[in-house]
Design a protein around this nucleic acid. Structure first.
Lengths: 200, 200
DNA sequence: AAAAAAACATACTACATAGTATTTAATTTT
DNA sequence: AAAATTAAATACTATGTAGTATGTTTTTTT
């Protein structure tokens, strides 16, 4: 392996460990020292690859968070199945697929949003991008549902998209408070009712 | 004013300033020094009134956060108006009543939930109390709606309650990312649809 | 193989942090 | 009024923090 590849690997390693630590303990409260301890590297390596902690934060948001949300919640919305099926399965499946660790610590993106969404404009912009991408995909599938006559014409796709995202992120925070899945099951039941009412 | 009253005032002053600073900058990232600077008091005063920062955190949650949620979102649910009216007005009114500062920084309770809901059990328990109180009130008004024949019999009150809370807290986080109210308006529209579908 | 550059390590600075120890001032009790 | 108690101030410790300065090693270029 040449130098460039190895260097890229260490950079990715820093980003990966950061994502994990930010997820477990928060962005602001995770120190560069802690991160570098986790990577078995030193501060020299960190500041060789990143200008400062902010640059790392933006890298984690733009690479890890965005990718995570895209792969799990966005991409499936562009699938060929009937819109209502896609909607009801994607949220349901996703929630059911979370392991205990993911239930306890909530949504990585939502954690960032709540911690530093009001902190600095650069973070705001980077996080907004994730939400907008998700929203667009939801609007796409909802509009398709209307076109294909499966979803009521008079509903506002954007509003439904926002409502779906809000409730999903909201419950991922609430779940942190409990040591069982009751709240998630209740959420799913509440969501089902909502989606049911979108049908013509 | 006697000593006890004055002492209680300084304690409340510490709690109030803490609430404000926690809200703006987060719990873990607001230092005791910063708080005492804001109160124009010193560290001696702080550690006279509180054993440690954790005790302060619990005081802020149990007194300020709980009270805030109760007064704005819980108490009105026990009013005499028709359930559907209460539901659609309370969420709508609350969102419309927020000033810019409150929109930018999200929900104080939700911020705590997302920051330290997975941090230590004592915080978990204290925050859970707030959510459960809110949920109970929603279930109460939903059940009343069923009894009074205004709300569909076959919906699960708990599920709807959880879904309502989730979406509300979710959008309060999302709003942080934007510099206008579009997302709130879309949320309200999405919520209206949801509530509309609860009617018989 | 020598020179240059890149990738990292080590050692440091300046400041922030939670909490403690001790002192001073004000108030209440006797 | 003296003694005791409470409220708060001051001074401190030990550790954590972001970031810098400089050194060393490895790889690439010449």
């Amino acid at each position: 392996m040449d130098q460039r590849q190895k260097s890229e690997l260490t950079k990715q390693s820093i980003i990966n460990e950061s994502f994990k630590l930010f997820y477990e303990n928060g962005f602001k409260t995770t120190s560069v020292d802690t991160i570098m301890k986790a990577t078995n590297l030193t501060k020299g390596a960190f500041y060789h690859h990143f200008k400062n902690k902010k640059e790392l934060g933006l890298a984690v948001i733009g690479l890890k968070l965005q990718k995570r949300v895209y792969e799990s919640m966005v991409a499936p919305l562009y699938g060929p199945e009937p819109p209502i099926e896609i909607l009801s399965s994607i949220f349901y499946k996703r929630l059911k697929a979370f392991n205990l660790y993911e239930k306890q610590h909530g949504c990585p993106a939502n954690n960032f949003i709540n911690e530093i969404g009001d902190y600095e404009t650069v973070y705001q912009t980077a996080l907004k991008r994730i939400v907008e991408e998700w929203k667009s995909a939801l609007v796409y599938v909802l509009d398709r549902g209307k076109t294909e006559g499966q979803i009521k014409q008079d509903i506002c796709s954007k509003s439904v998209a926002v409502y779906l995202i809000s409730s999903f992120e909201g419950v991922r925070g609430l779940r942190k408070l409990y040591d069982n899945d009751l709240i998630l099951d209740e959420y799913i039941s509440g969501l089902s009712l909502y989606i049911e009412n979108l049908k013509v």
